[in-house]
Design a protein around this nucleic acid. Structure first.
Length: 567
RNA sequence: CGGGGCGUAGCUCAGUCUGGUUAGAGUACUUGGUUUGGGACCAAGGGGCCGGAGGUUCGAGUCCUCUCGCCCCGACCA
């Protein structure tokens, strides 16, 4: 492509709304423009990057015998009523009526539609497994779109769905998809981590997220410093504590503790490690119908992990209980304990099971129990409630857990029969019995990946595309186009590079050196070949964008040098 | 959905508090000239429903009311 024919509107200044590097540089370098909240246009450079990512996905999917389809973006609302998700998705689902007053939605994901196209057509176990996917625009009317392409309302997603006769076969496919997704991210040149994820209310036996590591990521990950283990903090586990503080010696007693309300107060008052205190967190659990107060107990040194807590009571939502609500049911804020009270539903953290020498509230103002043996609570509801913290032990090895930030670019999920059962998508098994399909779902945020590449690869000058994602691998920049011999050499080089299948931009604009260099850096071509004064001595320079290093080479060797560098 | 901020040239912004020439700057764009290895300089130009509607006033970018849009924090997010 010749720059003089290209549409690449670069700007010196960032749009005032842009905050993240990916948003700033993708806008400044002319890859995307914003249309409205969460809506973006892809300009030629942006579209090329999208296409590159799509091509890699297509190649890896083909290698797994997954087949590409293209489902209607506008879907009848009936399908969503059938699956029950029209309620669950709520306002995120953009609904509208056609001229005949029929209700439709813009597809935010396509489980329903995909099930619909196989049901009654795939009817025998002999036709399974099948893996179908598409790369398509999705629309979710997010309450608060933000961060440029990272959380748009309209976005491009690869969504795949597999159908199986047995859970064993689903497990095999799930592993194959995980491997394919890893290969895709490796080929894109991204540093990432596959982490265990929260399965949420849908349940299922497996849910993994593919996280591109970047400080601006919205998700917090707990990763092991030694082994492969990683998990979203919402789902992270940890090894049993190894260094347990020395237990305080205290016989069971009710003790006056005036105004001692917080874990810190309690710990100081008795000079006891918070490990031996019991923290009470009261939340209002909201269900599809109604709500109730629930008290979660965990060791004073731990923090409640909200998603875990929500899952433990199968609630849709948890909201902080007010002091008034506690008092109303007879609890005393600051002195809540699990013993001898039936005023509130309780859930105990696993790590408190059988705990001894504990200090906890006595459910009476200004009193705590000391030396409590919690094995009396062994019949209570126990669950994993604690948030995994940095320094905790890895559940798989002797390593330590660290926290890091990630951008969720992929999510793979064993769905089982969650959709096939309500939608009555069934096949006949070997025994002639009707069974719902066992399904897996595999999503990858394609437009989000464009942003993720830049979040992970940029500097103060602009974008740094990886070789596989660059809109053009090489930029041939002519310092002064009026020098006919320079221009002639550039044209020849441009032709040779293209003949070798190397995607090349020829910057033939009548602009000054500095102007063109700044654009090259902002746009982020991996290599810029600079043709200028030195050509008269038979030399050109290659600017390597990742390092901004300038390599001087013989004009005759530039092709082989580019091939060497891009390997 | 709660809280906060902002809408003026393609872009980034001044001007609004305290109403009063023909609404400004930088940048980008057009033309001519001089430049040519790090976003050049000189000169001349084109470009505005001051987000929209209503109101107050002799007079509104500026004051009042309503409305729409965008951004940030939070809630929310298969």
């Amino acid at each position: 492509m010749r720059f003089t024919k290209a549409y690449i509107p670069t700007t010196k200044e960032a749009p005032k709304d842009a905050q993240l590097p990916s948003h700033i540089y993708l806008s400044r370098a002319g890859f995307v423009t914003q249309v409205a909240a969460g809506l973006y246009n892809f300009l030629p450079m942006g579209k090329r990057v999208l296409r590159k990512i799509e091509n890699i996905i297509n190649e890896e999917m083909a290698a797994c015998d997954a087949q590409e389809v293209d489902l209607s973006f506008v879907t009848p609302a009936e399908l969503w009523e059938e699956s029950g998700r029209i309620e669950k998705f709520g306002k995120e689902l953009l609904r509208f009526r056609d001229r005949k007053e029929n209700l439709f939605v813009l597809g935010p994901t396509h489980e329903e539609m995909m099930v619909n196209i196989v049901r009654n057509r795939v009817t025998s176990y002999k036709q399974l497994p099948i893996n179908l996917y598409q790369i398509k625009t999705k629309f979710r009317d997010e309450a608060r779109p933000r961060f440029g392409l990272m959380r748009g309302r309209e976005f491009v997603m690869k969504d795949g769905y597999s159908f199986h006769a047995t859970t064993e076969d689903l497990d095999r496919e799930f592993d194959a998809m995980e491997a394919a997704y890893k290969r895709i991210l490796e080929r894109l040149g991204l540093e990432f981590r596959v982490v265990e994820a929260d399965s949420g209310a849908i349940g299922g036996t497996g849910s993994k997220e593919l996280m591109v590591l970047a400080g601006s990521g919205e998700d917090t990950l707990a990763v092991c410093d030694t082994c492969e283990y990683g998990a979203n903090v919402e789902a992270a586990r940890r090894a049993p504590r190894s260094a347990i503080p020395e237990a305080p010696s205290a016989d069971f007693a009710r003790f006056k503790t005036p105004n001692v309300k917080s874990i810190e107060d309690l710990s100081n008052f008795f000079h006891v490690d918070p490990y031996y205190t019991l923290k009470a967190v009261v939340q209002r659990a909201v269900y599809t119908e109604g709500s109730e107060l629930v008290c979660f107990f965990l060791r004073g040194c731990d923090e409640l992990q909200e998603v875990k807590a929500r899952n433990s009571v199968s609630a849709i939502d948890l909201v902080d209980a007010t002091e008034a609500e506690l008092i109303e049911i007879g609890l005393v804020p600051g002195f809540i304990g699990p013993l001898d009270q039936e005023k509130i539903r309780i859930v105990m953290d696993n790590d408190t099971k059988g705990a001894t020498a504990m200090f906890c509230g006595a459910n009476e103002a200004d009193y705590h129990f000391v030396g409590v043996d919690l094995s009396v609570m062994n019949e209570a509801h126990f669950a994993d409630l604690a948030s995994v913290q940095e320094g905790d032990g890895c559940p798989h090895c002797n390593g330590k857990i660290l926290h890091t930030k990630g951008i969720e670019v992929g999510h793979i999920f064993k769905l089982g029969t969650v959709y096939s059962a309500p939608l009555k998508a069934e096949f006949l098994d070997e025994n002639g019995r009707s069974q719902p399909f066992i399904m897996g779902t595999y999503g990858m945020g394609v437009s989000r990946l464009v942003a993720a590449v830049i979040e992970q690869h940029h500097d103060e000058k602009g974008c740094i595309w990886t070789h596989a994602t660059a809109p053009y691998l090489v930029n041939v920049m002519v310092s002064n186009i009026k020098e006919e011999s320079h221009m002639a050499y550039a044209e020849e080089l441009y032709g040779s590079l293209q003949a070798r299948g190397i995607e090349t931009m020829l910057d033939d604009r009548k602009e000054r050196f500095g102007f063109k260099m700044s654009d090259a850096e902002l746009i982020g071509f991996p290599f810029t070949i600079i043709i200028g004064k030195e050509l008269d001595n038979g030399l050109v320079q290659i600017m390597v964008r990742a390092t901004c290093e300038m390599i001087t080479v013989n004009a005759a060797d530039v092709l082989s040098k580019i091939e060497e560098l891009s390997r």
